[in-house]
Design a protein around this nucleic acid. Sequence first.
DNA 1: TGGTAAAGTAAAGCTAACTTTACGTCAAGT
DNA 2: ACTTGACGTAAAGTTAGCTTTACTTTACCA
Lengths: 71, 71
Amino acid sequence: MGALKNKMQEHRKTRGFSQEKLAQTLGVSRQTIISIEKGRYKPSLPLAMIIAEIFDTRVEDIFILEEEDYK
Amino acid sequence: MGALKNKMQEHRKTRGFSQEKLAQTLGVSRQTIISIEKGRYKPSLPLAMIIAEIFDTRVEDIFILEEEDYK
DNA sequence: TGGTAAAGTAAAGCTAACTTTACGTCAAGT
DNA sequence: ACTTGACGTAAAGTTAGCTTTACTTTACCA
């Protein structure tokens, strides 16, 4: 139950994406974007990697593990 | 259903870890290690990040997205 | 030959990632 | 006043990550 912080919203706004547009680009629902940004759940590994790819950066630069964040 | 290749086994052996020992270090079951190495399923994001951390490298250096690997 | 360590398979169960649908709010523009 | 875009919540259903337990195989070595 540790925390997994993320800079999704930050990166998204910097790139001028709406949640809707980002969702379409990623091939997921808008709900998924909202939930990830709000920290309601953590993206799957492939999704996280595609996000990093689209934002032209690394996974670790968007998602940050806090302490022991098992599972 | 795209593929997500991984270099888990490679990294693990390089570090001299048995599946059992790696599992304990990560705090997951040995089954989980086997299944990830065999490509039966993909680790969660936090697990992938902890793996990368333990192997002292980046997520992208262990897990490789092939083509469009949604979800 | 018998024991042990490492790696593998199988199956049943729980949880959370993700979906879809639908509705609510607030700001900006016309 | 009304619409439109962007953001948010809620709830029910499916799927897959991960667990536990238990059994099998292979290889090494006393």
